[in-house]
Amino acid sequence: MKNKFPTIKTDRILLREITDLDVKNIFKGLSNPNVIKHYGINFDSLEATKEQMIWFAEKKQMWWAICSLDNQTFYGAGGLNDINHKENKAEIGLWLLPNFWGKGIMKEVLPLISYYGFNNLKLNRIEGFVETDNLNCKNAMSKLDFKNEGTMKDCEIKNGKSISVDVYAKTN
C-alpha cells in the first residue's frame, strides 16, 4: 500500500501531491522562458513534459503542487529532490509561474518544505543550488536562513555556456 502523500496548508496556500492532471500546468511553467532561465530543465511539448511527471513520482523526490487554498489556481511546484536518507540530506527546489512572482509565495513555501524535510523526513541538511546570476533566488535563500557556502565556478554547461552555481544550505 502506498503511503499517503502529505498535504500542507497555510492561510492562503495549499501544497498537495502533483498528479497527472497537473501536466498542463507543469508544461506551462517549464516551457516559459522566464521560468526556465534559471531552471535546469525545460520542455517544448506536453508529451515531453511527461518525463518530468515520472521524475516527480520517484521515491527520491518529494515535490508538491503549489496552489491557492481552494486548489483552483496553480502557482508552481516545489519540493525536495535527491533525498538521501543515508546522508540525511536533500536538495530543495521551487519554481513559480511569473504571474505569482513577488507575492511572497516563495518566502512562505520554502520554510514549509524545509520544516517537512527536517521534522518528518529527519534530514539534517537541506541544500539549494542557485545559478550565480539568479539574484532574486539568492536573496530569498539568504532571508530564509540558508547560508551561502560558496560558488562552484563554471560547474555546469547551460545553453552551450559554462555557468557557476552558488551553494546554499541549512542544517537542522
Rank of each mutant, 00 (worst) to 15 (best):
K24C: 01
K24P: 04
N25Q: 14
K28E: 11
K28S: 07
G29A: 13
G29M: 12
G29I: 00
L30G: 05
S31L: 03
S31P: 09
N32Y: 10
P33G: 03
P33I: 10
N34I: 02
N34W: 03
N34T: 08
N34C: 01
N34E: 14
K37G: 00
H38Q: 07
H38K: 00
H38V: 02
H38W: 15
Y39V: 10
Y39C: 05
G40Y: 12
I41Q: 05
I41R: 06
N42T: 08
N42Y: 12
F43E: 03
F43G: 01
F43C: 03
F43W: 08
D44G: 10
E47H: 12
E47Q: 14
E47A: 13
E47W: 00
A48I: 01
A48Y: 01
A48K: 11
A48F: 00
A48S: 14
T49H: 12
T49N: 02
K50L: 12
E51H: 05
Q52S: 00
W55N: 00
W55Q: 06
W55A: 01
F56C: 07
A57K: 15
E58C: 08
E58V: 10
K59C: 08
K60I: 09
Q61P: 03
M62K: 15
M62S: 07
W64A: 00
I66A: 09
I66N: 04
C67H: 02
C67V: 06
S68C: 11
L69S: 13
L69D: 04
L69Q: 13
Q72G: 09
Q72E: 14
T73I: 15
Y75V: 07
Y75L: 05
G76D: 02
A77E: 01
L80P: 06
L80N: 04
N81G: 03
D82K: 15
D82T: 10
D82V: 03
D82Q: 14
D82M: 11
N84P: 03
N84I: 05
H85I: 14
N88P: 00
N88C: 14
N88R: 15
A90G: 07
A90I: 06
A90H: 07
E91Y: 12
E91N: 15
E91A: 13
I92S: 08
G93P: 09
G93W: 01
L94W: 02
L94K: 02
W95A: 04
L96V: 09
L96T: 09
L97A: 04
L97P: 04
L97C: 07
P98Q: 08
P98Y: 11
F100N: 10
F100D: 04
F100G: 06
G102M: 10
G102D: 11
G104P: 01
G104V: 09
I105W: 08
I105K: 11
K107F: 11
E108V: 10
E108I: 08
E108T: 15
L110Q: 10
L110N: 10
P111N: 12
L112Q: 13
I113F: 09
S114E: 02
Y115V: 06
